[in-house]
Design a protein around this nucleic acid. Structure first.
Length: 843
DNA sequence: AGCACGCCGACT
DNA sequence: GTCGGCGTGCTC
């Protein structure tokens, strides 16, 4: 859809007496809604939740969402007119608008930012200013004197319908081309118009079918055969068509027709003879909108019958849903939670509602999608960040039209236009990736899901083998229901977990670089038995930093306060915070020595060394660097699945959702970096990570082994992981959180103050913190403090933490105070350019 | 977020 | 004298 839009919309004569105004959400980080006047003839077509086109500012034309329609004329300004309506039904539903509002309020961002994150950009419209020749301008007759540049533009416009501003710039090889455009407009040789194009285009296939009267009327087909006998090629096509579309068996099959490409891919049948048949009126061509999610070759399959434990869990969940809105399913890895979900989804669908099944990015794999497609077929929509924009828009429209009733998706699928949810599932509920950190909205999809469930009066099921402390606390206090599955599915047993003391191994000279001989031997054994191994190292790249042996020089990022990581495959030093990279120097830039040594180790080094130590092993690495291209992830998984690789080395990525039957050993190369992370959640995370990785070992009959290398084998967390003792982890953690005042006992807001000058950043943080103490009380404000990484992208950081007791706090009031304090700070001229980010419930 | 307006340095 | 740098402020 594209159309010319008149700039100054002329109001039509009043045919309808009511003057309506629309408050719209612009897709910009603006704090409030903007009010536009609805032209009378659009009174009936403008709807809340539909997109309209408006002019915003001097020339920008934007599409935006109507949030409200009313009759209150703005008192202090003249409202511009709504230019056009894009949708004949709302694309944002009522409950969604309420949810967006909640997100904006709770996470302290603007509605525009929520819309921006939520809408696939194919549903957002882009406008680009274009120029074209003035309709009244006649180059032959009108004698206007042009500058040479202007002549160039006119010439170009005589050969092109229109030019965008950028194109004009390129044409003239000039940045300052606006004056020529301005002058041409004055001379009435050109006009400017805004083209707004709707980028969403459903996928269309060309199909053909027999013209109706050949199938409707008796004997017509025989006659057609006779007619076509002299043209063997055309007859061939007809026979081919009838073979693939057996009209004689069922007349209705003809209606669906056959893809044109399906016919022409047969080398004997040429496209031209197909076209001849179309011209003759034997066949007719038509377009059909098709799904971008083909489910061909997938047989609908009934889900496996639930085991006794699964049935029991399901019944418990349904029982608890009668009294609680939220239930946590705590099931050990391999206990078969997914089957329970599938069963519950079926149950919810039968009740006639929609279902949202949330998964973290790395857990949403082809494996799980295939499994769900087999059960739910065309009813299933998949929403993944790797999908193209059109595909995402298609899921959006598919939910609105009722085509998709189940959606499996990542964090951002919480924004989809559901209107009739009957169940939300949040799997791997503890995952930190449900929280978006940058940019705004800094929302947590798990929390947002609970709010959405509440808005739509439905239930939420959270699932995890290692629940977050906060969620478990909610169960303990009785707010949520808790269902536990403690048995692994089938004969699968929990893996045997062993610790390897690195220090001891070093003393005994039993370390081969980063591998203990125990781990190496174990890997070799598996290779001999043709079993597979997963190795986990929580760091990508080759080495986290390098250092000169002579002078101890360490390369640092120019823009961030971090050392550069060494990536061997492209011989680069790279900053993991801003992406800055440079070539690895040959010798030390500080002292000239050729003694640069890599320190520490990442996945790349593990892969490298393992290949040297075990030359026979097929080693593959899976981390951010090896999964950048579109299909690389699937390829790595496929190679591992069919046994082409024996050892998979990777980061977090290898810990989630992958089920490989042949993996009998999992190795954790350095557990200490995970445990000693400076954060109140470090132990919780470490426990989750170790349990999740361990879960990859030994499925279906074979008990697996997990080897953990550590310098501190007495660290209590290992005992808890070995004994699968979540309760004891929880008891310990919740006590600490109560004692030191952390969630779930307080709500935290992290405020980051950023400025290019170290001192200004610090001063602003001090002033802000002081103001916050006055407003909220001394107990509630911590800091400011300089974070461990004190500079990112050339901005110096300072942090303030606000802790609001969960009980007896007016959260809204506190956030208003915070917003006020930030606003006031900016009023001071020194702090004009200060950037402040508030992160509610940071992870 | 853009995009205009506005006030200071290096060029025809 | 102009071009063009980006600081600041507004957009219904």
């Amino acid at each position: 859809m594209s159309e010319l839009l008149n700039f100054n919309y002329p109001p039509e004569p009043a045919t309808d007496r009511v003057t309506l105004f629309a408050d719209v959400i612009l897709p910009l980080p603006l704090p409030k809604l903007y009010t536009y006047r609805i032209p009378f003839e659009m009174n009936d077509s403008v709807m809340v939740g539909a997109r309209v086109i408006v002019q915003f500012g001097g020339k920008r034309v934007l599409s935006c969402i109507v949030a409200d329609i009313h009759e209150n004329a703005p008192a202090d300004y003249q409202a511009k007119y709504v230019l056009d309506v894009l949708d004949d039904t709302p694309i944002v539903t009522g409950p969604q608008l309420k949810l967006f509002k909640w997100i904006a309020d709770y996470y302290m961002c603007t509605l525009g930012e929520v819309i921006n994150a939520g809408l696939p950009s194919a549903l957002k419209l882009s406008s680009e200013s274009r120029i074209q020749l003035h309709p009244q301008y006649n180059p032959e007759e009108d004698e206007i004197i042009f500058a040479p540049q202007e002549e160039k533009i006119i010439f170009a416009l005589q050969h092109n319908q229109a030019l965008t501003f950028t194109e004009v710039g390129n044409l003239l090889q000039l940045k300052s081309y606006h004056k020529f455009i301005k002058s041409l407009i004055q001379k009435e040789a050109i006009i400017i118009y805004e083209q707004v194009s709707d980028k969403f285009s459903p996928k269309v296939v060309k199909k053909v079918r027999l013209t109706e009267h050949f199938v409707q009327e008796e004997g017509m087909l025989e006659e057609l055969f006779n007619q076509l006998t002299p043209q063997p090629k055309q007859l061939d096509i007809l026979l081919n068509y009838l073979q693939k579309v057996p009209v004689h068996q069922d007349i209705n099959l003809n209606y669906k027709g056959l893809e044109k490409s399906e016919l022409s891919k047969n080398p004997h049948l040429s496209a031209s003879s197909i076209n001849t048949l179309i011209k003759k009126g034997v066949l007719e061509q038509f377009d059909q909108i098709v799904s971008r999610f083909p489910i061909d070759n997938l047989q609908q399959q009934l889900p496996m019958a639930l085991s006794e434990h699964q049935l029991q869990a399901k019944d418990e969940i349904l029982g608890l849903f009668k009294e609680k809105d939220t239930v946590l399913l705590h099931g050990v890895t391999g206990s078969g939670k997914t089957e329970v979900y599938i069963d519950l989804i079926k149950h919810a669908l039968e009740a006639g509602g929609q279902v949202l099944y949330l998964l973290p990015e790395i857990a949403l794999t082809a494996q799980i999608v295939t499994r769900l497609l087999k059960v739910f077929g065309e009813k299933l929509g998949v929403y993944h960040s790797k999908f193209s924009d059109n595909e995402r828009a298609e899921v959006w429209q598919g939910i609105l039209s009722g085509r998709f009733q189940v959606v499996v998706g990542v964090r951002s699928s919480i924004f989809l236009p559901f209107h009739n949810l009957s169940l939300i599932i949040v799997d791997e509920e503890h995952e930190a990736s449900y929280k978006q950190y940058d940019p705004a909205p800094r929302y947590n999809a798990r929390e947002t899901a609970l709010v959405m469930a509440n808005l739509q009066g439905t239930k939420t099921l959270l699932g995890s083998a290692t629940p977050s402390i906060e969620s478990y606390y909610n169960c303990k206090t009785g707010r949520w229901g808790l269902v536990t599955m403690s048995k692994r599915f089938g004969q699968a047993q929990l893996p045997d977990i062993e610790l390897i003391d690195i220090r001891d191994a070093q003393r005994r000279k039993a370390m081969n670089s980063h591998f203990s001989s125990q781990l190496l031997t174990a890997i070799e054994e598996r290779l001999q038995r043709e079993e597979q191994v997963i190795l986990f190292q929580n760091r990508r790249g080759y080495a986290p930093f390098i250092s000169c042996d002579e002078c101890s020089w360490i390369p640092k990022c120019k823009f961030c306060a971090v050392s550069l990581s060494y990536h061997k495959y492209n011989n680069e030093l790279r900053c993991h915070y801003c992406g800055y990279h440079e070539r690895m120097p040959h010798d030390c830039p500080a002292c000239g020595a050729t003694t640069l040594k890599s320190m520490g180790f990442g996945t790349e080094k593990v892969e490298d060394e393992l290949k040297l130590l075990l030359p026979k092993a097929e080693v593959q690495r899976m981390d951010l660097d090896t999964t950048k291209t579109k299909n690389s992830y699937q390829q790595i998984i496929a190679d591992f699945e069919n046994g082409k690789t024996n050892v998979l080395v990777g980061t977090q990525m290898v810990t989630k959702g992958l089920d490989f039957e042949n993996v009998s050993l999992v190795g954790i190369l350095n557990a200490d970096t995970v445990i000693n992370f400076p954060d109140y959640r470090a132990h919780e995370r470490a426990y989750q990570l170790f349990v999740q990785v361990s879960g990859r070992a030994g499925r279906k009959g074979k008990p697996g082994t997990v080897l953990i290398q550590t310098r501190d084998p007495l660290q209590p967390i290992f005992r808890k992981v070995r004994n699968n003792d979540y309760e004891s982890l929880y008891e310990h953690e919740i006590e600490e959180r109560l004692r030191f005042g952390y969630p779930p006992f307080v709500r935290m807001i992290r405020i980051t103050v950023k400025h290019a000058e170290e001192e200004t950043s610090e001063n602003a943080a001090i002033v802000l913190a002081k103001d916050l103490v006055d407003r909220l009380g001394k107990q509630q404000v911590l800091g400011p403090e300089v974070p461990y990484i004190f500079k990112i992208r050339n901005l110096f950081l300072n942090e303030i933490h606000i802790k609001l007791p969960r009980a007896n706090t007016n959260l809204k009031a506190a956030k208003d105070q915070l917003a006020q304090a930030i606003f006031n700070l900016r009023l001071l001229p020194v702090f004009k350019n200060i950037r402040i980010v508030a992160d509610v419930d940071p992870m």
